[in-house]
Amino acid sequence: MSYQLSHLRALEAEGIHIMREVAAEFERPVLLFSGGKDSIVMLELAIRAFAPAKIPFPVMHVDTGHNFPEVIEFRDSRLERAGARLIVASVQDSIDQGRVTEVTGPRASRNQLQTVTLLDAIEEHGFDAVFGGARRDEEKARAKERVFSFRDDFGQWDPKGQRPEVWSLYNGRHRKGEHIRVFPISNWTELDVWQYLHEEDVEIPPIYFAHERRVFERDGMLLSESPHIELLEGETVFTETVRYRTIGDMTCTGAVESGAATLQAIIEEVAATRITERGATRADDRVSEAAMEDRKKEGYF
C-alpha cells in the first residue's frame, strides 16, 4: 500500500481543512459565490467539509445586475439543492443609495463598483471571514497573497505587511471591524479546477460549454450582445460558436471561439492553450500591468 494521494485529492483535502478551520474559529463567515467555476469548486468543498450537516455559513453573491441570465438561474437552483442561504449584495442598490456613481458610455462596466458593494455588505452583516475563490495562478499579485489574508477596517490589503503563514497553522485573529479573506483554492490551477469538476461530475452553468451566441468583437475579445452594453461605431454583431473560460459581468467577460461541448473537451483545450484565462477573457485586467494589484489593495475580491 503506497498511501498516495492524487494531486486533486491533496488539493481538496487542503481546501476542506481551511474551511473547517474557519468554521471553527470565526463567528460570522460567508462564502462568496458568483456562479463561476472557482466558486462552484468552493461550494463543493464546503458541502463536503460539513456533510451530512448543512454548510454552517451563508453564501453571498455580489450582484452587478449585468449577469448572464443562465448563471443566475444556475446559482438559484444549485444553492437551493445545497440548502444554502443566499444573500444578494446588489451594486444597483449601491448606485440607488448614492454610494457609488454609475459609469456611463459604451465601455461602462460595473466591475470596479463591486468593491464598495462588497465592503458595505461585509460591514452590514458583520462578516469576519470571507471565502473567496481566487487562485494564485491567476495573476501576479494573487501569487503573493496568503490563504488567510488580513484586511483592516477599510478592507485594504497590505502586500508588504502580510502575516507569515507557516505549515497549516492559520492565524485568523483580528479585531472587531477587521476581517480575513480566506482563499481555500489558492493552490489550484485553472486545469486543476476543470479536472476536479470533471472527475467529480460537478454541475456547472451551460455557458461554459460551446454554444451559439450573438457576439461582437472589441479589443480582440468576443463580447456577448446584451442590453447592458452599447456598440461602438463599426462594431457589428454576428453569430459564433463560443464558450466562456471565466464568468464575470456580461460587459467585461469575453467568450472564446470553441467547439468544446464536454468537460473532457474543455480540459484538452485548456491543456493546449497558450493564453492565460484572464488575459484572454477579462477586460478588467487589461487596464494596466498592476490593475489587479491596485484593485486588491482597495478590497476587491
Binding site: H7, R136, D137, K140, A141, A143, K144, P159, K160, Q162, S186, N187, T189, L191, E289, A290, E293
Partner: peptide
C-alpha cells in the same frame, strides 16, 4: 509579481508558482 518589485528589481516575500 508586485509593482514595487519590478521597479526595484527585488523580490518581496514568498510567491507561489505552479506547473505540471
Amino acid at each position: 509579481g508586485l509593482r514595487a518589485e519590478r521597479e526595484q528589481g527585488i523580490t518581496i516575500d514568498v510567491a507561489y508558482r505552479y506547473f505540471a
